[in-house]
Write a protein that binds this DNA or RNA. Sequence first.
DNA 1: GTCTATAAATCGATAGAC
DNA 2: GTCTATCGATTTATAGAC
Lengths: 224, 224
Amino acid sequence: MSTARERARAALTAEILESARGQLATVGAAALSLRAVARDLGLASSALYRYFPSRDELLTALIIEGYDALGAAAESADVPTAQPRTRWHAICAAVRAWALAHPHEYALLYGSPVPGYAAPQDTVAAAGRVGAALGRVLGDAARAGVLPPAEHRRTALVTPAAAEVLGGEHPALDDAVRARALLTWSSLYGLISFELFGHFAGVVADPEAFFTEQVGELADLLGL
Amino acid sequence: MSTARERARAALTAEILESARGQLATVGAAALSLRAVARDLGLASSALYRYFPSRDELLTALIIEGYDALGAAAESADVPTAQPRTRWHAICAAVRAWALAHPHEYALLYGSPVPGYAAPQDTVAAAGRVGAALGRVLGDAARAGVLPPAEHRRTALVTPAAAEVLGGEHPALDDAVRARALLTWSSLYGLISFELFGHFAGVVADPEAFFTEQVGELADLLGL
DNA sequence: GTCTATAAATCGATAGAC
DNA sequence: GTCTATCGATTTATAGAC
């Protein structure tokens, strides 16, 4: 149970992660350094190895933490009793807001892979929360009968596991619909990434209004 | 006045860039190192400073080179006499093919920004070539009369400069149409980035077919 | 234009005292 | 669980001989 020892350990672990997040902002994930974290916290570098056995484990913790924070933001923005289109808008806006508030963590999650780092399986579960939230909206929309009838195409573009997350089995859902859901999902990230990484600079006049409007276009595409 | 001297210089410059491209693949842009390039080429590190005054200048050269190669791939895939929808498909496929063939250069261009590196103005011109190619398709489609009539919305989501690239002035083009063009443009990169960065792993069963199909959905959205 | 040598840093990871 | 000390590497950039 508790014990001051455990609480102290948890507190220092949190401090390490917070300092590492700060480094993410200044030098990036590829240059994340245990020694710099130790310097920042006034500790010997070797002390950190009691908390994270290697630099990669620290990176993994940061990634999982990021996916969880983003997933929680998406989930808490969702109002399951609202109309599907309203829910879609709310979740997309929450994802963008989180990305703008945490640009470097967003880049860690959805930007270039970190060279020499292979994401362990632990990160995959956490990574699915936003997709799952969007999938619930699609499934609920199908069960509420607001989706146009599907054509039951026999292509198999989407994995069975992904189909399960994207609303499960329902007459209004077929492979083409689910593939379009994946398109809108990746489009959402295309929009956010272009805004965040500067590719819309000098091109989009009002990023906020632009985003809201295009998210509406994506909802149209999905039939929400 | 060529002179063997100038040719030798150009040849070595090319070798340096090629070696640097190789490093991009193994350690990433953030860890790109002049010394490693020198080691790879059997030169003293100080010799490279006669060719690139700093690490950042080398990075800039790589970025411009990448944008130019991608832009050339998009342009040479375009057949200006073909139908707009065919052209759209061809350009999108060429962009994806280039990205799959040069994943690390793609990540340099469209992934996370390199920390501590500010892209100089030189890169912006080269960066616009793919967007310009897509903009020409939209403009030609408008002038050919294949686009549905625009509603002449008075919103101003798109910059005047961007409007010029996206087909110029035409009755079939308004701010809403141009904004949708930017949406499809960023969606294209969302699709490619998700595939390349692993977010579609275990989700999309047949990446090639999936991409082609969704690019068609984007063409529908654009009215091509 | 290439070289050697050097300055002044950085890093991950480990050994062993306390 | 934190510390010092250390190994064996890395880096950018410059000075100056040739």
